[in-house]
């Protein structure tokens, strides 16, 4: 059984682990799992519906934006491009693992690590697939504020990385 579990994809392993932890938590909590599901049925349906919209948005971005789009615009190796890097990060859909091949390629081509940090920051903290969740649960103003804040955070992260690297440089 353990061998079969090991052969599963990362998503399935995480999913199964979360279900097991939920069952264990419900055993020590005040409500059992069925009561939790029943009392939150509306939230569950809403989130699952929003998830489907999120997948729809990711699919559109995946097929509309060419694969080399992000590589093309991040090749410009100047700190002034921290903003562009953050913006491109925000536009890149998918889990963080999906962008590591792009990041590694850019690194090999000599792109500044500060720009890569801005790109990773933008990609992780906000993204197209988050729109339905954040607009649906907290409103449009919250999401617009988060996008603006994320742009500032990405640029700040890149600048800080550059500053710290002067006293604690990267490995060669």
């Amino acid at each position: 059984m353990i061998e079969r579990f090991k052969q599963r994809s990362t998503e399935v392993k995480i999913g199964i682990s979360l279900i097991v932890v939920s069952i264990l938590l419900s055993l020590i909590g005040k409500k059992n799992l069925w009561e939790i599901i029943q009392s939150n049925s509306q939230v569950i349906l809403k989130i699952l519906f929003l998830s489907m919209i999120a997948v729809g948005i990711s699919t559109i971005v995946h097929f509309i934006v060419p694969e080399d789009f992000f590589k093309k615009y991040l090749r410009q190796n100047k700190l002034i491009y921290l903003f562009t890097a953050t913006l491109l990060g925000i536009l890149t859909p998918g889990p963080v693992y999906a962008i590591y091949p792009i990041v590694v390629l850019l690194k090999k081509e000599g792109i500044n690590n500060a720009i890569l940090v801005s790109y990773i920051t933008g990609q992780t903290i906000v993204g197209p697939a988050r729109i339905p969740f954040e607009v649906g649960l907290f409103g449009l103003n919250f999401f617009i504020y988060r996008v603006i804040l994320s742009l500032a955070m990405g640029v700040a992260a890149g600048f800080l990385y550059s500053a710290i690297s002067k006293v604690f440089p990267d490995e060669k």
Partner: peptide, 27 residues
């Protein structure tokens, strides 16, 4: 095909995650 594959994968993961988050919320 891409949409349905991603939907299946996402709904499983989000469903499991939801269960975890709601169980945690009950505390």
């Amino acid at each position: 095909r891409y949409f349905f594959y991603q939907t299946r994968k996402t709904l499983f993961l989000v469903g499991a995650g939801l269960l975890f988050a709601l169980t945690l919320s009950s505390f």
